[in-house]
């Protein structure tokens, strides 16, 4: 039940998902029996299905013409059309992955916004012919989707939360594979004199004490969790302050709001460099030593995702791919605006 509710909310993000589910319910036992077979994934199987349809209605077509003049002929045509439509949907539904929905990757927005995720996913698909569907969201939400069994594999950057997730047995494996760094951006004139600060928490304390605008994602994402920890260190509770803008949105949107509002903002380096039109923001603090932002891939434990063993296998494969040499090279090659935002681990 929760799944279907979730599907409704995300139907724009996963267009094929709900459709496939809807039609599966209407197919009847014969077709459903087919879907209960061994979990065979990927395009090969799909094409096989499309080429050799095993559904009985098709041969009926010949006999149908005898009744062309009669009402039965019309009924037959309607029936045929419906059958073909259902068949079409079944085939379409199995494109990303055959049985029991797609392999879902809940990911932080940062990787998605910078475009690197698309490249990784493309490379993975080229290599293994499996498609993985990314849902961009915050780290907190990604972990929650993992707990609910809505996602098969996660990419997050909230180490403390991730450890808790693993400790409670929701995860099968956790692999750090990519990193960037946290920076503080703000108005170039730097009214809070953040540039003189030695650490991020000191910078935040300067901003908070003077009450300069600060844009926060406020969405329990990795960056937000990290930011909250910094505020705690600075001894300030920014929540419900007039100068504290909680956007509830992704990193790119939050940077945009900071840009327009002339606010400070804690961000990962990669999203900042990959966001265009941030003329009113510049890097005001790039702490030394680096405040690292480490992205890990977590494969959700199979028991969480029910019987979707096929998904589990693909998820494991995907996590392994993220740490592969091939992927590392890809990360090192990835450039935005001439800058290399990520480093492999």
């Amino acid at each position: 039940m929760v799944k279907s509710l979730h599907d409704q909310i995300f139907c724009d993000l996963r267009p094929e998902g709900p459709k496939a589910n809807v039609w599966q319910g209407l197919e009847g036992d014969r077709v459903r029996g087919e879907t209960r077979g061994p979990p065979v994934l990927g395009k090969e199987r799909c094409e096989e299905l499309r080429l050799k349809p095993s559904h009985p209605p098709l041969p009926k077509r010949k006999g149908g013409f005898q009744f062309m003049q009669s009402f039965r002929a019309i009924t037959f045509i309607v029936f045929l059309a419906l059958t073909l439509a259902i068949q079409g949907f079944t085939v379409a539904g199995c494109l990303p992955d055959a049985r029991g929905g797609s392999v879902v990757l809940a990911t932080t927005t940062s990787l998605y916004d910078s475009g690197i995720l698309d490249e990784i996913l493309d490379a993975f698909e080229r290599e293994y012919k499996f498609r993985v569907k990314p849902i961009p969201t915050g780290s907190g939400e990604a972990l929650r989707l993992g707990i609910m069994g809505e996602a098969d594999v996660l990419i997050t950057h909230a180490p403390s939360e991730e450890e808790r997730f693993m400790k409670r047995g929701y995860g099968y494996s956790r692999t750090p594979f990519l990193k960037t760094e946290y920076i503080l951006v703000g108005p170039p004139l730097d009214p809070a004199t953040v540039r003189k600060a030695s650490s991020l928490s000191e910078a935040l304390s300067r901003i908070g004490k003077a009450g300069f605008l600060f844009a926060s994602r406020g969405d329990k994402s990795g960056t937000h969790i990290f930011e909250m920890a910094l505020w705690k260190k600075a001894g300030i509770n920014p929540v419900r302050k007039g100068w504290y803008l909680e956007t509830g949105q992704g990193m790119a949107e939050t940077l945009l709001i900071a840009n327009e509002k002339g606010a400070y903002c804690l961000t990962d380096y990669s999203t900042y460099v990959s966001s265009p039109h941030l003329e009113a923001l510049s890097i005001v603090l790039k702490p030394e030593p680096k405040e690292e932002c480490i992205y890990s891939a977590i494969v959700v434990d199979a028991s969480r995702i029910g019987k979707r063993l096929g998904n589990f296998r693909v998820a494991k494969l995907f996590a392994r791919f993220l740490s592969s040499q091939k992927c590392k090279e890809l990360i090192m090659r990835f450039k935005v605006d001439g800058k290399i935002p990520y480093r492999p681990i």
Binding site: G138, R144, G218, T247, G248
Partner: peptide, 27 residues
């Protein structure tokens, strides 16, 4: 509006946000 909490957050954007965060009751 940007959906900024207690500044520009209205029913619809609030719903969207909480649906995405999985706070289905609020949404």
């Amino acid at each position: 509006g940007g959906n900024i909490k207690s500044q520009t957050r209205v029913l619809t954007t609030h719903l969207l946000l909480y649906a995405r965060q999985g706070k289905y009751e609020m949404a």
